[in-house]
Write a protein that binds this DNA or RNA. Structure first.
Lengths: 208, 208
DNA sequence: AGGGTTTTTGACCATACAGTCAATAACGTA
DNA sequence: TACGTTATTGACTGTATGGTCAAAAACCCT
């Protein structure tokens, strides 16, 4: 019997994501959000609670979407895992050299979060781990296939790919073009074909 | 005969850098800067012109410092170029897994810049290229030494290392620990020992 | 010592911002 | 059709921000 809402939360979060991706959390104003979502301020507050909370929602959606996309890209079985990764990296090179001004919310959260304990940091850390998990799964398949040495450190390689893609994202934003970014992606992939896999298990007297 | 300043610009820029590295451009308030530098607002304005201009100064100093540091790290001749890069990457892993809340101003500028044409973007792009140049020089030495294949694409490898280090920086901020980051660095280095260098010259039907 | 020049100081300002309030509208149900 | 519940609207508020102004201070040179 209550009055129903005029909007779908997912639409609102999605519009808000757009704003945050372009401006960032700090620089996005509530007015930007009101304009982009079409709701009034009060409705935003009723539904989400504030700018920060809305960002967290958007971040979480962004994370799910990113995970979904990578899982989809690496989850096919019509090609070898290594070929899937290769294709994925090349697609990332293209995506990141696009000219839109978006920055993934995860990266934004990473940079804008302040403390170790704030929910932004927590969410971001979880996002990174989730993403790495997807890579790890694919790499593990490759290892089982014999496409990677049996002693390959799948975990660190997974994090490595997350690092490289984050770096490529930044470089794309810096204006590095598609050709160069593609070359970088190919460089990055060469790790998977190199010898001396055992080096990964030889950390130089350094402890966590 | 004019009244002399009470401060050295370099000190001020350096304190301001600290503030910007922790808070970012948008989130740093003029009051933060006033407090950190010890000058009054008006003095800041007289000397620099405003928050944005001060950030640009800090960014430029940060860039010089970063370039200097990498040049120093890679410029020695008491070790082979590849060993220098290895040592450098391992040191980066340690630095980035440190627990301070700083983010390099270059990364901040990269993320906070809005337009293609604003001075932030321009400065950042230049910084990236400068950094890549240093790597390229070292890699070129390696190639001349025969430590890299004659057909290695030194330019893209240089950009690759910039990308990886940026990614490591972000991951460190996300809380990835020293051990993992070190493993990532070692993974990244494996590119230099891999075979099939010719793949880098085989970009898959993609144009700049 | 005095004057020209620039810095410093601290009060000041307009604005823009995140967030709130109270009144009104819209719906489903009874 | 009236009521209870919740959404919407738009005006409102307090604060904090980036930036400015004008007066006073500090220096150096003559």
């Amino acid at each position: 019997m209550p009055r129903p809402r005029k909007f779908r939360e997912s639409d609102v979060v999605s519009s808000a994501s757009e704003v945050f991706a372009v401006h960032g959390l700090a620089a996005a104003t509530l007015d930007d959000l009101v304009r982009a979502t079409g709701l009034g301020k009060q409705s935003l507050y009723n539904a989400f609670g504030g700018k920060r909370e809305l960002f967290l929602r958007a971040l979480s959606e962004d994370r799910e979407e990113a995970t979904r996309a990578v899982t989809e890209a690496l989850g096919h079985d019509d090609a070898s895992p290594l070929e899937l990764i290769r294709g994925h990296m090349l697609r990332m090179a293209i995506e990141f050299s696009g000219s839109d001004r978006r920055v993934s919310l995860t990266t934004r959260a990473l940079v804008e979060s302040t403390g170790e304990e704030d929910p932004l940091s927590t969410a971001t850390k979880a996002g990174i781990e989730q993403l790495a998990g997807v890579y790890a799964q694919c790499l593990e398949h490759a290892r089982e296939n014999g496409d990677l040495p049996a002693d390959a450190n799948v975990q660190s390689l997974a994090v490595y790919f997350v690092a490289v893609t984050r770096g490529m994202e930044l470089l794309g934003r810096a204006g590095v073009g598609r050709g160069v970014l593609t070359a970088v992606a190919l460089d990055a992939l060469r790790v998977l074909h190199g010898q001396r896999m055992e080096e990964a298990n030889d950390p130089p007297s350094v402890r966590e």
